[in-house]
Design a binder for these strands. Structure first.
Lengths: 251, 251
DNA sequence: CGGCCGCTTGAATACCGTCAATTATAGTGG
DNA sequence: CCACTATAATTGACGGTATTCAAGCGGCCG
């Protein structure tokens, strides 16, 4: 069940089979299923437990008084919503399902047990939330400095790398590809652009051969080219096994 | 020395005099002074210790290949740079001084001692970094959804409340005011706007009586009016003493 | 097969950026 | 104390990028 999370955390550190068993167990205690566009929780809610995305896509978002909506993060399998939120009394944003979703609800107590029991897992969770923070900072930069095509290209680069890090890309045959179950409207909410302009931007990207997007599959003929137009630098994703020093324990 | 940090953390939880003494001590171990526009650290650096801003303003920022620059956070006295960064191998962004700065360098060991020694302080630090994350998300929303005047107004509201929470505002006489040692160019880098347009936006705000900005002092004649044009909702700052339940110890 | 949601297109316009020049302010040294 | 210089703020003109509005198209699901 916790396959994607384990795979992601292993980008940072190796995990013992004990660690993995613990994660598997935590992820299978209670699984909740949501339909597309349902909310996992809403702004103002009291946080109760940690949610782990097992399957499907979700997004964090904020809504302004007048209805404008900003997606502040796209969540894919292996992502944790609000690892630490139990410190705060109220959620300051919402998380909603983009596709039908299956989510593990992990009680905060279980999380505390895990982090107290294993320094490796504790650090791995820590790393995970630091990366989330770094992604948020990169989004600020993306929205503030990059223009339309760079912005969308950047998001595609990020998604590709994040999906690859949890084993959700196809690199067979010629070009790498992945499933993108997101509408152009949602892309607009994530990039701070209008739907119309997202559409035109996507078209330009297609014309320039940067992406092929048919149905729900995106193919990237030339990743380097895409990264170039995006001014993409992957360092903020910290996919560098920085925590290797921590696993003295087991092979 | 650690006055502002203590004051800020007390927005979350009450601290014992022991807690405060520990913080004071940590903040006075080693103090570094920087001139305006010097960097505390740069993207690519290896994080060595935690930096606590004692005096002056700083900013986190990222620079694109072609020189475009985005400020992703404004840092004021009491703010910690990279509480958790020692998990990561390389910094993915820079932090630079806006004004002359005095910064406490706190060794990671000291931080670990503190957090292991006091559950209250540990949670307070946690709260602090959750709030930083929340601010980053709000900035994403700000850049993505709000137009120029709303965006600048929002930043002013945020700064006012954050400064007030560390005791750096003046509410005497009639209207609240604070020192803003930031150039319009830096404001532009923070809001993703051009300098020229920041200038024009500020002028409109002045004409509409939303702010008075003379020299380095900003006065807010009508905070509610400013919040209204900003579509500002303070919940993301979590200034609600959420951690009061934690201080059973001392009066 | 019809309806709905998402995608696409065009035209008009608003917002904001760029360039370039001018004025104001602050910091520095004689 | 004042001239000098650098930095910051301001202004105008122009153009480009992105938004809005409105309408048409197309595929997928019931």
């Amino acid at each position: 069940m916790a396959f994607h999370l384990i795979r992601k955390l292993e980008q940072f550190t190796r995990l013992s089979s004990d660690d993995k068993r613990i994660l598997e167990q935590a992820a299978s205690l209670k699984v909740r299923r949501l339909g597309s566009r349902e909310d996992i929780f809403r702004e103002g809610d009291k946080p109760r437990h940690i949610n782990l995305i097992l399957d499907g896509w979700a997004c964090r978002y904020k809504v302004l008084e007048d209805g404008r909506r900003q997606i502040t993060a796209l969540l894919i399998p292996g992502d944790l919503c609000d690892v630490h939120m139990f410190i705060l009394t109220r959620m300051d944003h919402s998380v909603g399902a983009i596709t039908p979703l299956s989510v593990a609800e992990i009680p905060t107590d279980t999380i505390l047990e895990i982090t107290h029991g294993s320094a490796r897992l504790s650090r791995a969770f820590w790393w995970n939330s630091l990366v989330e923070e770094a992604i948020a900072r990169e989004w600020v930069t993306n929205l503030g400095q990059r223009e339309a095509i760079e912005r969308v290209a950047h998001l595609f680069c990020e998604l590709f790398l994040r999906l690859r890090s949890v084993g959700m890309t196809n690199s067979q045959a010629s070009c790498p590809s992945f499933e993108l179950p997101v509408t152009q409207e949602q892309l607009a909410d994530a990039t701070g652009m209008s739907t119309v302009h997202v559409n035109r931007t996507i078209q330009e990207m297609r014309e320039r051969g940067l992406i092929v997007w048919k149905g729900k599959t995106v193919t990237i003929p030339d990743l380097e080219a895409l990264q170039d137009v995006a001014l993409f630098n992957a360092n903020y994703l910290h996919l560098d096994h920085a925590g290797q020093a921590y696993d003295a324990n087991e092979p």
